[in-house]
Design a protein around this nucleic acid. Structure first.
Lengths: 194, 194
DNA sequence: CTCTAATCCTAATGACGTTAGGATTATTAT
DNA sequence: ATAATAATCCTAACGTCATTAGGATTAGAG
């Protein structure tokens, strides 16, 4: 049985499926090859290394996240758009916890990949902040602030540090997001788009 | 050469040193054994497994963090205490980036360990929030909010997602912390320690 | 001074990622 | 149609990894 029609896209998609199913730490080239009814060595005709594969998987997952966030924002603007972004950000991360881990582990090392990943991550936040009367520099700051908050919340939650708390984590998240929105308005008021 | 006086504390300390020096992913039992002038197998007389070792290392790192944060807060109160906590949180994470990764990777699985880790992580935040006129439930929410923000910021920074930005990340962090403090005061005003 | 328990070693196992080189099939040029 | 070329997948092997079993050596208790 030769020429089974293997290619990079098939391998990347299978890797994503395997990781979502068994978890990121349990992944191995052997299991991936078994899943594709192929010997492990055959994979190396289409990918350079496992690390390179992880990069491709990360970029693919990042595109999934990008789609999810942008479609959640839709045609909304201002506070509603921020709220929608925050809600969909947390939902994507919890529904694709393993892929989310890869996204966060990916950019170490390769600078070109880092820039592509950073741009894709930033876009939904840039879009949502466009409606606020802030300078470009302020928007940049608030982009980092929003991303930090959302990622941090999701990350602590996934690590398990927020379990066993006698309060609704969902509600905590909403408090945080509302706090950010208040902060955005305060900043708008203090310096009218200087 | 027998009976070299190996014990768990020595192994844990050496692991921390090795990780801080060469990074978390580069760690191996071989290197650890070499560092201690011992064969790899000998380590297993004092630790159950590598994962168990990681747990001990994580708890030890968490104690280091606990010391660092509490001494930074010192006798300060209110907004000054929150600011000091935020500043020291970010500093500890950047000075001990590899240990910080372990802290965040540790609690998966073992529930007893998770509770100990969660309690130790929470304490500095609980102390800082004690000065605000808020209900216990509100304090709980804001503890999660503050932790989420600080961790998220630090984590994105370490992953590399905040590099190549034409603004001072330090300043972004201060904006975020000030926003949180404003939020705390607003919450105090709306419901006087209900 | 002997017995026991702890300590450390040698040796081996199985899983892992990765590479080299050969066999087989598809594609292209004649 | 057929020969030359390229792509695809395989077998086999290597070195590294964490981990375990069992034996040799040493320290401390009776």
């Amino acid at each position: 049985m030769f020429h089974k029609g293997l290619n990079q896209k098939i391998i990347v998609d299978a890797t994503k499926a395997l990781m979502e199913q068994e978890g990121f730490p349990a992944f191995s080239m052997r299991k991936l090859a078994e899943m594709l009814n192929v010997k492990t060595a055959s994979l190396y005709a289409h990918i350079e290394s496992m690390e390179a594969l992880f990069t491709e998987v990360g970029l693919s997952a990042l595109r999934d996240q990008w789609d999810c966030l942008l479609s959640a924002i839709g045609e909304q603007h201002g506070d509603a758009a921020v709220t929608a972004l925050a809600e969909s950000y947390r939902r994507f991360a919890s529904e694709h916890a393993e892929l989310y881990k890869i996204i966060m582990q990916m950019p170490t090392g390769n600078d070109a990949v880092l820039k592509e990943a950073a741009a894709m991550t930033a876009e939904p936040f840039i879009r949502v902040l466009a409606d606020y009367r802030l300078s470009e520099e302020q928007k940049m700051h608030w982009q980092l602030v929003l991303r930090g908050l959302m990622h941090g919340f999701v990350s602590e939650e996934q690590a398990g540090y927020f379990s066993h708390y006698p309060v609704s984590v969902e509600e905590s998240y909403q408090i945080a997001v509302r706090c950010m929105i208040d902060g955005l308005h305060k900043e708008e008021g203090e310096s009218n788009g200087r």
